[in-house]
Write a protein that binds this DNA or RNA. Structure first.
Lengths: 217, 217
DNA sequence: TTCTATCTGTGAATATTTTCACAGATAGAA
DNA sequence: TTCTATCTGTGAAAATATTCACAGATAGAA
């Protein structure tokens, strides 16, 4: 309890949080590490070990309380605080994200959308305030936006990321078909469709055919 | 050389492959491990170590030949063989992927699209053959589709994944807002927007603010 | 040809992560 | 209250992965 948590454990615990919020909605009150294993593919003893890194987990003969687990994870990782995000690039992909119901992004608030084309911005109907790319730095700073979802073409990806960074953004989820250059003080996750497909190919070629997503992720 | 390659190394090498194909297009002939580090965030000695796991890397005083690296990785991971994929769920997100130019998915061929609504299918103009969900199992088997991109709502995600699996699919990239249950013999990557955002939050809360994407990915 | 500067390639050392296995805790039954 | 069955919690052991550090290889200069 209270130790510092290794990154792989953070990833697993975040996944657990997601699964547990789902369970809570379907009114499941308690759950054991074994049940969680079958839902997530994370092995039961890993789950117990990971949870032991957190402060004061409560459990009993029939496992953990979904409610208190959710709360504990939420506290540990700051999920209870709503964070502002923005979407940079409003083509089909960006729009699909912008059009998500609020509930799909619970815990986050889309505080701005950006695109390079004023024509496109004028065509969009949304409650989210929209701006042009050149305003990124100013607006990110002004609105205190913490994370960005980047969904632009390969040509503008790095430049747009630089603008976001200049505005003081803390993290970028990059869906553009480019691997962004790393930058000190900026969390980057490249989610690159073609590369994800290649990774599947590579794993297959190397003989990983398990169903356990944690064994290769 | 010839050893078996650990999963984290496969991930890094796949990323390298992506970066190197980009370099080759911009006509860069040779590249050093240090340059690759600054492009990918993967440390130079890790790159060298990873490459040493592959058969016969050729290098010299000015680094590696982009061409031969690309070829080597391509051979090792089977990127030279074109694989068939399908898209299940053709709402905005699925359509954004369907509308990608072929070049954006080089090495893969979209061999089918699926949706639950016949009306929606009739509205779509594309060269890709489209079918209803109930045909998934049959078509996946018949067309020998290897991977699926799943982009449906949370209600149908698990059921649709089961259909894909029944057809003998080998891997699923799941963009639906649900964590799919693991299954023996099936590679699953859950790419869940909300969870990716949460992971950024969690990493931030735990004090990871490096720019090096590999240090937390 | 020899010297030099600059890379790579890789065993060995370290560090990290996962797995194990069992003591301890809990709740229900008798 | 005591017994029992069933979980969790966690040090210690084992397995993996990363980092280091330097020998070896290469190519250009003199």
């Amino acid at each position: 309890m209270g130790k510092n948590i290794p990154v792989p454990a953070i990833e697993r615990l975040t996944k657990l949080y997601t699964v547990i919020t789902g369970l809570k909605k379907s009114n499941k009150k308690r759950i054991s590490s074994t049940e969680l294993e079958s839902l997530t593919g994370i092995q039961a003893h890993s789950i117990r070990k990971d949870l032991s890194l957190l402060a004061s987990v409560k459990s009993s003969k029939d496992g953990y309380s979904t409610e208190s687990l959710e709360e504990l994870l939420s506290m540990t990782f700051g999920f209870e605080r709503k964070r502002k995000i923005c979407i940079a690039g409003l083509d089909m992909h960006g729009m699909a994200i912008l059009n998500n119901p609020d509930s799909a992004l619970s815990g986050f608030e889309i505080a701005a959308g950006f695109d390079s084309s004023i024509n496109r911005l004028e065509m969009i109907t949304t409650k989210v305030p929209l701006y042009l790319f050149y305003e990124i730095e100013e607006k990110v700073r002004q609105l205190e936006i913490e994370f960005a979802i980047l969904a632009v073409d390969s040509e503008s990806a790095q430049k747009t990321a630089d603008r976001l960074a200049a505005g003081g953004i803390k993290g970028i989820l990059n869906f553009s078909p480019v691997i962004l250059e790393p930058k000190q003080g900026l969390l980057i996750r490249n989610i690159y469709l073609l590369e994800e497909l290649r990774l599947l190919s590579a794993l297959l070629a190397q003989g990983f055919a398990t169903g356990n997503s944690e064994q290769y992720k």
